[in-house]
Each structure stands twice: as C-alpha cells, then as structure tokens.
C-alpha cells in the first residue's frame, strides 16, 4: 500500500470519528430533555448519557480509532 493511500485512509477514519463525535456530543446533548422520558439503570436516560454514557462512548471511540490506525499502519508497513 502506498504512502498516499495511508494518508487517505487516515483522513477518512478521522472524519468518521469526528462526525460520530459531533453526533453524540451535540446531537444527544440537544435532545437530553426528550431522552429524559426514558429510564436506564434507574436514571433518566438524558441525565445518564450526559453524566456517564457519553463519556463511555468517547472511550470506545478512541479505542476503535487506535485499533483501526494500527491496522492501517501494519498494512502500509509504518511503525513509529
């Protein structure tokens, strides 16, 4: 795989993560009041997402990004 495909793939992955991040942060944030009508683990859902859920999603996002990047770098023989 050539160096420019490496960058293309990195860029596409970055864009995906950022879009997901915006959707979770601001999309879910905007509808917190509506989400509060549902319950989750005894919490109102909107409150739960803002206090814990969103944070865990962030963690998963970075983990997926790191995993995908490692794959991409293995394929293009980059190791730094």
């Amino acid at each position: 795989m050539s160096a420019s495909t490496y960058w293309q793939q990195t860029r596409r992955l970055t864009l995906t993560v950022i879009l997901a991040w915006v959707a979770v942060t601001f999309g879910l944030g905007w509808f917190s009041d509506e989400l509060n009508r549902f319950a989750f683990l005894g919490f109102p859902l909107g409150f739960y997402m803002a206090a814990q859920g969103t944070l865990l999603v962030y963690l998963v996002m970075i983990a997926i990004y790191n995993h995908r990047m490692r794959k991409i770098e293995e394929e293009s023989g980059i190791d730094d």
Partner: peptide, 15 residues
C-alpha cells in the same frame, strides 16, 4: 463540564 472536560480528548486523539 463533565462532557466538555472529557470530550476534548477525542479531538486530541484523532486530530
């Protein structure tokens, strides 16, 4: 504050 002070790390990680 809870979301803001953690969400920034996603940006740090990928950008």
């Amino acid at each position: 504050f809870v979301i803001g002070w953690t969400g920034g790390f996603v940006l740090v990680a990928v950008l």
